[in-house]
Design a binder for these strands. Structure first.
Length: 284
DNA sequence: TATAATGTTAGACT
DNA sequence: AAGTCTAACATTAT
C-alpha cells in the first residue's frame, strides 16, 4: 500500500525519533523475513533514516564503545568489532506493510512480524499479507541514487527514456527503475492531473504532454507528503494516525462518480493487471 | 464464495 | 535481445 508519499512520511517521522537510539533487541516473528538478520544490529546506534524509492533504509553505525567492552577481551578482537562500517536495515512494505512506534506496554497488534526495541520505544512492522521484506546488510558502497520524483521529474528525460516504447504510460510511471516511488494511486492521479489517458503508449506522448506529467507530479506528490499519505483502507503513519490526502483524490476509487474537472464520468478498467481509474472525457 | 487489494518479480511469450 | 504480459507470492475484507 505505501507509495512514495507514505514511505516519505514514515522516514521523516523515524528521523525525528531514531537517530542516536541504540538497538536493544530485534525479534523476527515471521520466518519469511529471514532468520538471524537482526542479531548483528544489536548494540548499535541509529545514524539516520533514508528513503530510496519505496524502501526505508535505516543506517546503523558502529557498535557502541560500552557494549563491546567485555572484561578481559583481547584488544585485537575489540578492535576488529569496531572496525566495521555498520549496517543498513532495509525495509520494503510492499502491499500491506505498516510501521508503528509503540511506546506503551500494551501487547503487540495482530500481524506484527518484526519488533525492533529501543530505549524510547519499539518499532513494529505490521503486515497481514506478509509481502514486506527486511534485510540487514553491512554498509557497502553507496547505491546509485534513483530518480526521485520529489526533486522533480524532468520531462525531457522521461521522453527520452520512453523513446518509442509501447508500454502504457501508467505502467511506465510505475516502473521503479525509471521513476522510483510512484505506485497505483499516484500514477492514476498524476495522469488525471496531466490530462493524459493511462493507456497511451509511453512513446506516443509529445514533449508538452511530458511537461504536463512533470507538473502534475510536482503538485500531487509534495501535497500527498504534506498530508502524510493517502488513507483509503489501512494506511496509518508511524503513530497510527490516518493520512489526509484522500480528500484530494480526483479519480482513484471514484469509479462512476463525476469528474471534478470536466463533469464526465470516471471510468474503471484493468491495465497491466492493476485497477485503473481515469476520466475518458478529459484524459486524452 | 468469488474478487480485488496502495508491490515486485520470475518466467513465458512476442 | 529487448519489450511486454501474466501469474505468483499470502491474507484479509467486501
Amino acid at each position: 500500500m505505501p507509495e512514495l508519499p507514505e514511505v516519505e512520511t514514515l522516514c521523516r517521522q523515524l528521523n525525528a525519533i531514531l537517530p542516536g537510539e541504540k538497538v536493544l533487541a530485534v525479534e523476527i516473528l515471521d520466518p519469511r523475513l529471514g532468520e538471524g538478520e537482526g542479531e548483528r544490529l544489536i548494540g548499535r546506534k541509529i545514524a539516520a533514516v533514508y528513503r530510496r524509492g519505496k524502501s526505508i533504509r535505516i543506517e546503523i553505525g558502529k557498535r557502541d564503545r560500552l557494549s563491546d567492552m567485555s572484561p578481559e577481551t583481547d584488544r585485537g578482537k575489540v578492535k576488529k568489532i569496531r572496525m566495521d562500517k555498520g549496517f543498513t536495515a532495509e525495509l520494503h512494505l510492499r502491499m500491506t506493510g505498516r510501521l508503528f512506534w509503540q511506546t506503551d506496554a500494551t501487547s503487540l497488534p495482530p500481524y506484527t512480524r518484526l519488533v525492533m526495541t529501543f530505549s524510547a520505544g519499539k518499532l513494529l512492522l505490521i503486515d497481514p499479507r506478509r509481502f514486506a521484506t527486511f534485510h540487514a546488510r553491512s554498509r557497502g558502497a553507496a547505491l546509485p541514487p534513483l530518480a526521485n520524483p520529489l526533486e522533480g521529474l524532468p520531462a525531457r528525460r522521461l521522453g527520452e527514456i520512453a523513446g518509442m516504447r509501447r508500454l502504457p504510460v501508467k505502467h511506465f510511471l510505475m516502473d521503479q527503475r525509471i521513476v522510483a516511488g510512484i505506485g497505483n494511486i499516484y500514477a492514476c492521479e498524476i495522469l488525471h492531473h496531466a490530462c493524459v489517458d493511462p493507456r497511451r503508449p509511453s512513446g506516443s506522448l509529445a514533449a508538452n504532454e511530458w511537461r504536463k506529467v512533470e507538473k502534475a507530479a510536482a503538485v500531487i506528490l509534495p501535497r500527498a507528503v504534506a498530508c502524510r499519505g493517502t488513507t483509503v483502507s489501512d494506511w496509518r503513519d508511524l503513530f497510527g494516525i490516518s493520512g489526509e490526502n484522500q480528500k484530494h483524490l480526483k479519480v482513484y476509487l471514484r469509479d462512476g462518480e463525476t469528474c471534478r474537472r470536466c463533469g464526465g464520468k470516471i471510468g474503471y478498467m484493468k491495465l497491466s493487471g492493476r485497477g485503473t481509474w481515469f476520466c475518458p472525457a478529459c484524459q486524452k
